[in-house]
Amino acid sequence: MSITPSEPELSAVVGERRQLINLAYRLLGSVAEAEDAVQETYARWYAMSRPQQQAVESPGAWLTTVAGRVCLDMLGSARARRERYVGAWIPEPVPDRTEWTGGRAGTGPAEPADPADRITLDESVSMAFLVVLESMTPAERVAFVLHDVFRYPFAEVAAIVGRSPAACRQLASSARRRVRAAQAPGAPTAGQAGLVRHFKEAWEARDIAALVGLLDPGATMTADGGGLVSAVLRPVEGAERIAQYLIHIADKAPGLTLLERTVNGRPGLVAQRAGVTVTVAAFGVTGERVTRIWAVRNPEKLRAWGTDGEG
Rank of each mutant, 00 (worst) to 15 (best):
V270C: 14
G284Y: 01
T286S: 08
T286M: 04
V278P: 06
G265W: 09
R261H: 10
P267K: 10
L258P: 04
T262D: 12
V276P: 00
T257H: 11
R273Y: 12
G287L: 06
G265P: 13
R273P: 04
V263R: 09
T262S: 15
L256D: 03
G275H: 06
V270Q: 13
R261N: 08
T257M: 07
G275S: 12
G287M: 04
R261S: 13
Q272M: 13
T279G: 03
G275M: 09
V285P: 01
G268N: 11
A271I: 07
G284M: 00
T257F: 09
L256K: 01
G265D: 12
G287Y: 05
G268Y: 05
T286I: 02
A274H: 14
T277F: 00
L259H: 11
G268A: 11
A281M: 13
G268F: 07
V263G: 08
G287C: 02
P267F: 12
V270M: 14
V278L: 13
F283I: 03
G268L: 09
V285W: 03
Q272G: 10
V276L: 12
V285A: 07
A282C: 07
V278N: 08
G268P: 08
L258D: 02
V263H: 11
P267S: 13
A282E: 01
N264G: 13
